[in-house]
Amino acid sequence: MIRLFTKIIKTGNRTEALGKADHATELLGEQLSSAIRKKFQGSLAIREVDAGSCNGCELEIIAANNCYYDLERFGVHFVPSPRFADMLLVTGPVTRNMETALKMTYEATPGPKLVVAAGDCAINCGVFGKDNYAIAGSVADIIPVDAIIHGCPPTPTDIIRGILQAIET
């Protein structure tokens, strides 16, 4: 145990001030009034949905939770079910085999809710292409989207900035 505590003390606090984004976030739609968005600030529960990604975006979303970025310090945390989520963070082109699951997850999320599409695939199907029999479309083709975060994959900073922008506007 002593080694464990020594390691914690030696490691110290590595969390950094949030850096500059590499890729842009765009806000779409007028789904929620700014008054409601404001209410999410300080405590936002997110359900992550991989609708067909290559898992690169997932790696970067996991990284947004590491000690350098510490997404939770902004009051944002990931939850295991859409039933108690305020936001869906969706990655990947939506495959034909995930279309129903994504719609059901959206339905299961209580309103008011936000949807952020993260990564180039979620925005325009990326390298896999919209003109593909196995792909149902981009996230916005399937469910209403409030904000999109560019990048292949977006960096952890891009992801955090995108999420915050979606609730702060």
């Binding site: 067909g52 690169g56 990947g92 896999f128 292409g129």
Partner: peptide, 26 residues
């Protein structure tokens, strides 16, 4: 997550295919 990757390779040149290959599993 079947997204037609093998079919997508058809019709690409080898150099174009490298970008897709990098994204078979991130």
């Amino acid at each position: 997550v079947h997204k037609g990757i093998e079919k997508r390779f058809e019709g690409l040149t080898a150099v174009e295919g490298a970008r897709l290959a990098s994204r078979i599993s991130g």
